[in-house]
Amino acid sequence: MTSHDHIKLTSSELSSLFGAYVSDTLSICVLSYFLNHVEDSDTKDCVKFALESAQTRVKKEESIFRAEGIVIPVAFSEQDVNVRAPRLYSDEFILHYVSNIGVMGLNAYTTALPTTARQDIREFFSLCLQAATELFNQSVDILLNKGLYIRPPYIPYPQVTEFVHKQHFLAGWLGEQRPLTSTEISFLFMNLYRNTLGSALLTGFSQTAHSKEIRKYMERGAEIGQHHSAVFAKFLEESNLPVPTVSHFTVTDSVEAVFSDKLMMSHTAALYNAGSGFYGRSIGGSSRKDLSAAYSRLMIEVGEYSLDGAKIMIENGWVEKPPSAPNRKDLAGG
């Protein structure tokens, strides 16, 4: 017996565990394929660490589900990936992708942990956070050593303390615009980087999807990512800041199916849902009105694309319903 035997999981804990399980099983499929093709030894070690971490988490998540008498989600399995399919992405892309897994993990687990009360679940998410931190640091070290890390723009160090005294600081519609703050630059750069990486991923998906409808959907997603990257690059250019160039997100010309359409659609949905969250944070960190307006406009485009994707997934029976509150009217016979 343990101290939490009589304490049921809260809705927040259920939600976090369900989401983590779906995400981890998806990652196992993608990383297993990458591991079968990656050639660089350092990158291979990083992929292997990410894969083993995800496999360890899945075992723990399944043990929690069993102990609680909760049905284990279907999520994803080896049926959703063909690890023997030809190479679709370069080693450099794979390394950046794995680094982004670390970033996404840091965001997910720092959200999950504060909403968790039960000690064993807190301990689990604490270990998850530790693994995500290690993966991120490991991947960044490799990117730096190989000269592949993409740094945000440099700006001069401040030499004096300044306070804002004019409303012009909030302007951005017409007339002369103030230079971007370091916070605004950071958000613009990271959103540009994530969209460029995502666009490359969806380009590969568009070449290898089974369904013509989904190939077109992936093409549209890749184009949206390119468009959003161009918007962010323009803001940097207008402040005379260098726009990072990404030439190593290489996609091969292979057209042989790698992942199931279900997995690719779910992966795309997760990317764009995360993107909406990042845009929301960017609005909060951007004082210039033109930046806030741009993020708001792009969020609408992301929302429309995500809604269309959700319709496709529902029509194909690919949306697994997360744990939900009971419908009291149905229970009452209403």
Score class of each variant (00 low, 15 high):
265 M>D: 00
267 H>P: 01
173 W>M: 13
104 M>V: 12
134 E>W: 01
81 V>P: 04
283 I>R: 02
314 I>V: 14
332 A>H: 07
247 S>A: 13
117 A>M: 08
281 R>V: 08
266 S>H: 11
120 D>N: 10
27 S>F: 09
23 S>M: 06
160 V>I: 13
299 M>I: 15
272 Y>P: 00
255 V>P: 00
48 K>F: 09
62 E>C: 01
235 F>L: 06
175 G>T: 13
139 S>W: 03
256 E>C: 02
47 V>N: 02
158 P>V: 11
118 R>D: 06
182 S>Q: 12
49 F>A: 09
213 E>H: 05
117 A>K: 04
321 K>E: 14
283 I>G: 03
200 A>C: 02
302 V>E: 14
2 T>R: 13
56 T>R: 13
296 S>R: 04
326 P>I: 11
73 P>C: 10
101 I>A: 05
241 L>R: 01
162 E>A: 13
106 L>P: 00
91 D>V: 03
302 V>M: 13
132 A>D: 05
46 C>A: 15
121 I>K: 02
154 Y>H: 11
115 T>H: 01
237 E>N: 05
280 G>M: 03
40 D>K: 09
147 G>V: 05
226 Q>C: 05
278 F>G: 06
216 K>P: 00
43 T>H: 07
329 K>W: 09
298 L>H: 00
4 H>N: 12
297 R>D: 12
251 V>D: 04
13 E>A: 00
183 T>S: 14
250 T>V: 12
325 A>M: 12
